[in-house]
Design a protein around this nucleic acid. Structure first.
Lengths: 334, 334
DNA sequence: CTGAAAGCGCTTACAG
DNA sequence: CTGAAAGCGCTTACAG
């Protein structure tokens, strides 16, 4: 490895001067700088980022923990976080928890030992408990896409999931649906469900626990099976709410496979509104969650905390969702 | 920040002893070790990983560059790489190139300055040229999922794409198809296309350039539009090959939307065989690529190189693909 | 089994 | 504008 000292020797200066031209910090006489730059090029010198980190106390790296990357929702978040980081010269250390609490705990511990300058945790699927054992309070952490039990000690950028569920419910209700089933990942998505129910209760319609189906896995296949169960439980239902898009994809297929038409016989509404859903047939009506904006805000929050050396502003930001009406919802069949 | 020295002072030993108990390296008398451990707990000491890295010359971190993470194929690779890394106590630094050559170049440069101990590059979409400016030859780099222009200076774990395309072609040919279109991401997937063509040429059937359609984007929507174009170009075609699953999803929809049945009127075959495709209707026939195995092998290769301190074995490993026949392919309509 | 010393490759004030 | 010194928090031989 060629070191800064090697460059200095070659250019006939001290390493401090090399450091100055590399970082453009102090003013260096043009010809000296040129000599140094030539030496750098000749030797193919690259600064050792680890040494720099030790000296500066900053790694130019941010950690991101997500439940999985194999979902359009989280992959959008990962890409957005990386974009913002990249724009500011930071690198991304990624960890996926994969429905494994121990793994999540290990990653939380591993990432908070100065390997990264800050940590963003997206999704409360596997990390609700471990958060109790918070590391150094001065270490910048932020949460996003957090639905359950928002800890008040940490800044969070999320959405009002209950209101989002309410939006979905109001839409279905306004179309006259009264026999609806919900395919919901529980307990993670309980707020969405609560909102959905609230929309109906206002009209004295109750979505009982017997019409709530928790999929075995958070995939189209999981949604498919859950929807089949729903159709078996009430063959006359007219609408199905899916607590996220991947499930909705499976629900759509299950309904069609059962010989029913969408939305003629059964309306289907999804949640998140990630890119792939606009292409389903019929195109999926869904609650749109501003995932990229959420990731962007949370990342900026952390970056600001890092550069200002203060803990991130401890606030709970709630982003708004909206209803995107496409072709999978329609008036309830009589 | 509480340092090793703080722990040492509190436990009444020197920091070397603390280091020894933390790393379990040298033998430490049980009661001393207990005292040190107590001090660590009291102070909430966590070793500074950056300082350790500078001293040991290793970061326990591996970089991964992929084109995107919003695709089932690459997200599987990312998750598998992270799994292997996690099992060995390594962290993952992730960079996505996102069809941006400059960004790719920047990432390659950024990641090879001792921020990571090794680098895995998956997918040749954006990084073919930049590889020319290779960093230190002793820095462990490996390639995987590489289709075009495999550099012979770097170890690569990939598959025989031409043979994979041949498999797809032989399958369609054996079903009697002679009017086939190909929806292919070019030039990235040209080997697959070459294989497909080769299968037909043996039977004196030619898939002309006018029947090859490059999608605007690597998404279902891209596949959808390309398939529509294909059906317009030859309304009587009986089979469509898609160069990856996401495209195939769109192709399937386009064919159905055109009023044709799959596979009655048109057979559709995909490529990669990622998780989501088994649930399409009809279930997609596809060339199965062992993505996880590929990622696993490449990662192991790098890990071995790191621990042994030698450059990775410079070999080109070709993994085998297989044909998974489901319901989207059938005999050609007469 | 424990401690004193040197070093990893940088940066950051501080003199000159 | 350039150089000498100290330090970031660890680990690694090496004495005792």
């Amino acid at each position: 490895m060629v070191t800064m000292q090697d460059v200095a020797t070659r250019a006939g200066v001290t390493k401090q001067t090399v450091s100055n031209v590399v970082n453009g910090r102090a003013a260096v006489r043009p010809d000296t700088a040129a000599r140094v730059r030539a030496a750098i090029a000749d030797l193919g010198y690259k600064p050792n980022l680890v040494a720099r980190s030790l000296a500066t106390g900053t790694t130019m790296t941010v950690g991101l923990i997500v439940p999985t990357v194999a979902s359009p929702f989280y992959s959008e978040i990962v890409e957005e976080v990386e974009d913002v980081l990249d724009q500011h010269g930071y690198h991304l250390v990624l960890a996926t928890t994969r429905a494994d609490g121990d793994r999540a705990k290990r990653q939380l511990a591993g990432l908070s030992s100065r390997l990264v300058d800050a940590l963003l945790i997206a999704g409360d699927r596997d990390l609700t408990d471990p958060l109790a054992l918070l590391p150094d309070p001065r270490f910048p952490i932020a949460l996003c896409a957090w639905e359950t039990d928002i800890p008040d000690s940490l800044p969070v950028v999320t959405i009002d999931y209950e209101h989002a569920g309410l939006l979905a419910g109001k839409h279905l209700r306004s179309l006259g649906h009264t026999r609806v089933a919900a395919v919901v990942e529980l307990p993670t998505h309980e707020r969405r469900l609560a909102g959905l129910r609230a929309a109906f209760e206002r009209h004295r319609v109750r979505i009982g626990d017997d019409m709530v189906f928790a999929p075995i896995e958070a995939t189209p296949a999981g949604g498919f099976a859950a929807a089949q169960a729903a159709l078996a439980a009430d063959p006359g239902l007219t609408a199905i709410f899916a607590s996220h898009d991947l499930l909705a994809l499976g629900v759509l297929e299950a309904v069609k496979e059962s010989g029913r038409s969408v939305p003629g016989d059964v309306s289907v509404i999804g949640f998140d509104d990630t890119a792939p859903v606009a292409l389903t047939h019929p195109a999926l009506t869904a609650i749109a969650v501003p995932a990229r904006q959420m990731a962007q805000q949370a990342t900026s929050l952390l970056l600001r905390a890092i550069t200002e050396g203060t803990p991130p502003v401890n606030s709970a930001q709630l982003l708004r969702t909206s209803l995107v009406i496409r072709d999978s919802t329609g008036p309830a069949r009589r």
